[in-house]
Design a protein around this nucleic acid. Structure first.
Lengths: 260, 260
DNA sequence: CAGTGGTCTAGACCACACT
DNA sequence: GTGTGGTCTAGACCACTGC
């Protein structure tokens, strides 16, 4: 099979001096096309995508090329392969990878034995983005944003205080009630209710002293230091969709990170 | 090619009821063999390993199978592929990935513009492992360990205080002078001088209040909270080889983490 | 059983580095 | 040019799932 989705080097044009070669392997182009179908919602979270054979026929490449594209997407947690069943669009709702982005673990004991956190929405309101929040979410200052504050408790002990900001437009209709009623990861709700899938995130961690309001909500003394975890979460295309500032009490828990 | 390195299912034995199938693909077996050659030092850090063709001949499998094994090892940062040149054993001494395990970055500006940290060895002595340290390093309580304390400064400001413990045996002959004189990542010194290559690590992060000694060494007020970063670093075979407790000042720096 | 992903092979050609 | 890793193909067979 010699056909290609895009021609790699523009034929007919003489080689320009400044032009970078920009060689892109076929499987990368296929990866891009699959990514597009994910973005546009042709295949929705949890659904299966066509078989490798079907995709190979669709893009007119060999199965091996499709396979390599899917391999990379599965590695990025955008797709999940299930032998004998097919390839599926990844979801935040799956048992195995629930709370993929939450790295706080109990110092001892199995995280599962601790059970799910109790969640309490403290506040949920609409407001206008200030400069900081606008920058983080790639909005203009003054654009509508949704602000949520909540507390997570483990075994009755308040452990995480989170403030989060969402762009107002994609999350029209999100209310405190909606958040409270939903049983499962917040990012799973975002997927099913608003079609926003968080794909990756970056966190900046510092040690800070709590203010009075934080002390009260977390039921700690003012000299107890907190882990400040500032997260920006992105959808497809590196579009920021959430700014989250978490404050973690780390006397019986720790932030876990694996380095490779 | 139908030959295999190991037979997958023991022939001649009737299928036992409790036996798990334990099917292992060929390329995984090849991966194991390459790993063995890395452990035994047949190929040393920085050196090139045989070409894919040579390895295919050696293990009597196809090049594609060797390729898949190497792909995974390269993904784990154990090998580095260089097109046109060959495949090399990864090192901590390379420009691109220096300080692979140090996730502290300046809040603003390019980390490179900050330049390398100034390092100062505070202390370096031999002692016997207590229970905690013995457990972390898989030693017996009372075994010889080396303890090092040092401070790293950025732009003259002390920012990181580290205590680290190493098993005495593999690191015989390591002295404060040796550490001070060496110009480069500590893990690079461990490779070249002691043949110990750190392959992965795990970190537990908490927010803590500093004690008096820490305040003095880091030149901070006693109410400044610190990020406590406890790391266990592993060589091949998941053998723990270093326990490190870092205390980071996070007023102008932050711990950065990417979530996928 | 058919259909899916997973493994393995063999061969062709491309991109890159060195000499 | 030669040798390396990188891409692409085509076909065979294996392992797993569900009908």
């Amino acid at each position: 099979m010699t056909s290609q989705v895009f021609s790699v080097d523009a034929p007919g044009l003489p080689d320009l001096p400044a032009a970078a070669p920009a060689f892109s392997p076929l499987y990368q182009q296929i990866k891009g096309l699959i990514l597009q179908s994910l973005q546009t919602g042709e295949w929705k979270p949890g659904e299966g995508i066509p078989s490798e054979m079907d995709l190979a026929a669709r893009y007119r490449v060999s199965q091996g090329t499709v396979r390599k594209a899917i391999d990379e997407l599965a590695n990025d947690n955008l797709l999940i392969r299930r032998q004998g069943k097919g390839t599926f669009v990844a979801t935040h709702a799956e048992q195995q990878v629930q709370y993929r982005f939450l790295k706080l673990l109990p110092d001892e004991g199995d995280p599962k034995s601790e059970g799910p956190a109790q969640r309490k929405i403290i506040d949920c309101k609409r407001l206008r983005a200030n400069a900081d929040i606008g920058r983080a979410l790639a909005l203009r200052t003054g654009d509508a944003v949704l602000q949520v504050r909540r507390v997570l408790s483990f075994a009755g002990a308040p452990t995480i205080l989170e403030d989060l900001w969402l762009p107002g437009n994609p999350f029209k209709g999100l209310t405190a009630e909606r958040l409270s009623d939903y049983d499962g990861p917040m990012y799973a709700l975002f997927e099913t209710e608003f079609g926003v899938r968080m794909v990756r995130a970056e966190e900046r961690i510092k040690a800070v002293v709590p203010d009075a309001a934080q002390c009260k909500l977390l039921e700690i003394k003012s000299h107890t230091p907190l882990l400040s975890v500032e997260r920006i979460a992105y959808t497809y295309n590196d579009t920021p969709m959430e700014l989250r500032r978490g404050f973690y009490v780390t006397d019986t828990h720790h932030y876990h990170n694996a380095l490779n």
